[in-house]
Amino acid sequence: MLLLILKRIGLGLITLFIVSLITFVGVEVLPGDACTTYLEREAYGAALDACIKRLGLDVPAYERYLDWASNVMRGDFGYSLSGEMPINEVLGPRVKNSLVLASVSILIGIPLAIVLGIITALWRDKLPDIMISTITIFSMTIPEFISATLLILIVAIWLGWLPGIVIIPSDATFYELLSNIILPVVAISMIMTAHMARMVRSSVIQVMASDYVQMAILKGVPYWKMVFRHVLPNALLPAINVVALTIAWLLGGVVVTEVVFNYPGLGRLVIESISNRDLPVVQALAIILASIYVGINLIADLMTLMLNPRLKSLQIRK
């Protein structure tokens, strides 16, 4: 088991290494270097030389990669170009904001998705299923920039209950943050919950049709007991990996929602740094987002392994 965990961690590290290489090479092959893009029309003569010297662009690429990589490993991403401040300081509040948004969405969205999925499966083709399924399919098909805009129009502008865009001072308390993020959370949850509820539904339906559920019924196990002991553990197992992907997506990828609500999270930082040609920040973000994906998938795999007796004993036997 331990060997397996180490093996998975090793594989994750190799993935990260490859990601770092690809981003570094990607940035390298872009036309112009960091200085020409940063200085724009002033990119000539002494200013350019000074910039090149300052950013260390005069040394060969592989040396710069090694240098950058060893710094990253120590947790130092270097300096951003536009702000001319350490990237860590740029990232810090963004990571925090993204975490808050993601965790609130997860805490609301995932349990809701599971409950809705189970309800729709158990009352399959009956009224609760038809109603919930219609709503979930509806919210799944509307792109988030439309649903987000509609939310702003209705809740913020017409009703005036909540602020339409998020303006958070950097020293905002958690409570202040919370009232600001209700709309983004709703917009995100709509899509996320819908997707996951559909998945849980089909998984539960599949397990309900299995021989062992029929056996449990014929054994005289009361309905709800059967649902909780025989159906759900087996139906929710495959959901773990989907949950993991959703969490990773939430932490790094809710770009559209963040832009619409002007929410200062990682997703918007990606957009900003790309449009500003702030290459060191782009690199740093690529590594961070890749680590999140790798890390969360690793956890999900291990959890599946722990919870599925079949896989567990398979591994031990090997």
Binding site: D211, Y212, Q214, M215, R229, H230, N234, L237
Partner: peptide
Amino acid sequence: IAMIPQNAGQALTPNL
């Protein structure tokens, strides 16, 4: 009345 199923491998709940 108790049942003995056709395919016990599939009729026993895998996680229990």
